[in-house]
Design a protein around this nucleic acid. Structure first.
Lengths: 336, 336
DNA sequence: GTGAAAGCGCTAACAT
DNA sequence: ATGTTAGCGCTTTCAC
C-alpha cells in the first residue's frame, strides 16, 4: 500500500520529477500535452501530494494550536467551528487542548503546542495573570498568539477578539430593571478573569445609577461550573435577603443557579428573573429558556483565525483588537 | 527569529550533525561529556526538534483524524479527551471534523482528512449506510479506521468500540417498570443509526415480555436535536394516549421532550418518568436530573486511540470489537 | 519545454 | 566515539 510519489509518476512517464511538479502546479513552462498526460497518470495511479514534504521545505508546520479552558459547554466548540471554517480550507490543522480552568495545565498545553511546532496559537485563557510570562516568551520565540473572549490583563503585542462585556452587561441590567426588577443579584465569576470584573462593573454601574445597588447581592464564585452556580444560588438564599432577579457571569453559572432555585420551588421568572452571558445552545435547552447576551461565537472564531493568519504571513503585522457586537436575546427566564 | 537546527548546533560546537543527533537521542555511542556539551548548547540556543522532518523521514504524518456528527453536546468532547490522553503524549496531533449529522459533509470531511495525510481515523458515523463505500476505500488505500459508539451496519475490517445498546436499554426499561410505570413511550432515533434500532429492540423486548408493549407509544424522530425531542413529545401528547414514562434514544432527545412537557405543565417524574442514554453532564444540568445509561466516554476514547495505534503499528493487526460496560445512573427524572 | 541537482531537518547506515 | 552521506517528497534555481 505504498504511497504514490512524484518520483513514481516520473518513472512511470519517463519524465523528470521537476516536470511532474510543474505539471501538477500552475507553472506555465509546461506543454499542455505533457500536463494532461501527467494529470491523467496522477489520477490513475492515485497520486496524492505529501503535505509533510512541503511543510518541511517551507519551514511551516501548518498546525495551529487552540487552547481553551474547557470543551464541555458548547462555547469553545462554536468558536472552534469558526476557526475551522477559515483554516481547514487553507490546509491548516488545528490542535486542541483543554486547560480545565487550571493555569498549570494551560502552561503545559502551551508548551506542548510549541513542541508540536505550531505556526500560531488561538487562546481563550483561563486565568488572567498566571501565564503572562509564557505568552510573552512564546511570542518572543516567534509564535504568534491571538486571544479571544478572555484576554490578558497586561496589554501584550497580540491581536484580540472579544465583545464589550461592560456595555452589554449594562444593557442587560437595564432590561431587568425595565421588567420591574429592583433587587437584582449578581453571580460574579472569579476576579482572575477580566470579563468577570468587566461584567461586574457594568452591573454595578447601572444599579448605582438607579440607586438600587446592594453589595450584599453580589456572590463571587470560585469557578465557572454548574456546581459553582448552584452554590452561589444557595449562598444567596442563605442570606435571607429579598431578590427578584439574577444576572450571572455565564450561562453555566446561571443554569446551576436556576436548578437550585427549581429545587427550592422558587418560580422563574415569576419570583426571580434570570439572565446571563452566552452564545450557546445551553441557553435554550433549559426551562425556562435563558435571556442572555448572545456572543457571535462562530464569527469570533473566524476573526481569530483571520488575525492569526495575518501574523503568520507577516510577523511584523500590527496587532489588532477587535470588539464585536453582541445581541441581547430576550427569553422566558426574564418574563414576557 | 530563525529556528535553531541540529546543523546550527553542529557548527556551534564544531561537531557533526550525527553526533548532535546521537547526543540528543538515546544513542549509546556517545561520550558522556560530548552529550552534556550538546545538551547544554541545545538548551542555551533554544533548540527544538522539528517534528516535520521526522514525519517526512518516517513517512508518517502523526495526524489522527477524529470525525463526529457534532460537538455541541459534550458527547464527542468527552471521547475526544480520552483520545487526546493517549495520543498527545505520543506526539500525535488530532484533527477534528464535524459532520453536522450530514453524510455528505462526513464524506467531505473524510476526504479532507485523507488530504491531510492522517495516519488513522477515529469515527462516530452519522448515517449507517451512506458512506460504507468510502470507509472501505480509505482502508484499502491504507488508512486504518476505528469506529466508536455508532458503528457501521456492514461488518468492515475495522476495530470498533461501543456499549451493548440492546441490553443496557433492557435494564433501563426494567427499571422504569420497577418504578411502577406501565405505559412507557419511546422516542426512537432515526433508523439509519444502528444504536437507535438496537435500543428500540431492547425497549420492545422487555415491554413485550411484560405484555405492555404498545407500538403507538413509539415516536420516531428525524434527527437527534433538542428540537427533535421536543417535537416527539408534542406528537406523543397529540395522540391523546395515556403514558407515564418515556425512554429516549439520547439525552438530547430526552431533554427536548422534557422541556416540552414542562411547558405543558406535566410534572416530571410525578406524571411522566424520563430516562435516556447518555454519559455527559447534560443529564445533570437539567431539572430534574435525568436517569440515564452512562457510557464510559473517556475510556471509550482511550480504547479507540489504542485500537488505532495497533493498526498504525501493524496494518495487518486483527480488528477487534470491544463492547464496554455502561452503568445505569438513577436520578430524579424517574422518581425516588 | 524539460532535466539535473540542491536543499528543507533529521536519522541511520556506513565509514573511520 | 565521531564523521560522512544518502534519503524521506517536493519545489526551485540553474542549465540546456
Amino acid at each position: 500500500m505504498k504511497r504514490i510519489t512524484i518520483k513514481d509518476l516520473a518513472k512511470h512517464l519517463l519524465l523528470s520529477t521537476s516536470t511532474i511538479s510543474r505539471a501538477l502546479g500552475n507553472d506555465t513552462n509546461i506543454h499542455p500535452d505533457t500536463k494532461k498526460k501527467v494529470l491523467d497518470a496522477a489520477k490513475k495511479l492515485g497520486y496524492r501530494p505529501n503535505p509533510t514534504a512541503l511543510n518541511l521545505k517551507y519551514g511551516q508546520s501548518k498546525n495551529i494550536g487552540f487552547v481553551v479552558p474547557e470543551m464541555i459547554t458548547p462555547f469553545a466548540s462554536k468558536v472552534l467551528r469558526g476557526v475551522q471554517n477559515i483554516l481547514y480550507p487553507l490546509g491548516y490543522r488545528i490542535i486542541i487542548t483543554e486547560s480545565d480552568e487550571n493555569p498549570l495545565i494551560e502552561r503545559k498545553n502551551l508548551l506542548l503546542l510549541e513542541e508540536f511546532n505550531v505556526d500560531g496559537i488561538i487562546i481563550n485563557l483561563c486565568h488572567e495573570t498566571q501565564n503572562q510570562d509564557l505568552y510573552e516568551q512564546i511570542m518572543d520565540r516567534g509564535t504568534p498568539l491571538v486571544f479571544f473572549d478572555r484576554i490578558p490583563a497586561k496589554s501584550l503585542a497580540a491581536s484580540k477578539v472579544m465583545v464589550n462585556d461592560n456595555i452589554k452587561t449594562s444593557l442587560m441590567i437595564e432590561h431587568l430593571i425595565d421588567m420591574g426588577r429592583t433587587r437584582i443579584a449578581h453571580i460574579m465569576g472569579p476576579s482572575t478573569i477580566r470579563n468577570s470584573t468587566e461584567r461586574a462593573m457594568g452591573y454595578q454601574r447601572i444599579l448605582t445609577k438607579h440607586g438600587i445597588f446592594d453589595p450584599d447581592l453580589v456572590i463571587k464564585t470560585e469557578g465557572t461550573t454548574f456546581e459553582d452556580g448552584r452554590n452561589a444560588a444557595r449562598q444567596l438564599l442563605d442570606k435571607k435577603l429579598a431578590f427578584d432577579g439574577i444576572f450571572a457571569f455565564t450561562d453555566t453559572l446561571a443554569i446551576g443557579a436556576m436548578n437550585y432555585l427549581h429545587e427550592q420551588h422558587i418560580k422563574i421568572p415569576e419570583k426571580v428573573a434570570i439572565a446571563s452571558f452566552s452564545g450557546t445552545e445551553l441557553a435554550t435547552i433549559v426551562h425556562p429558556q435563558l435571556t442572555s447576551v448572545e456572543q457571535p461565537l462562530l464569527q469570533m472564531g473566524e476573526i481569530a483565525a483571520g488575525l492569526i493568519l495575518e501574523k503568520i504571513k507577516d510577523s511584523t503585522a500590527p496587532s489588532k483588537t477587535i470588539v464585536m457586537d453582541a445581541e441581547i436575546i430576550y427569553r422566558a427566564s426574564t418574563g414576557e
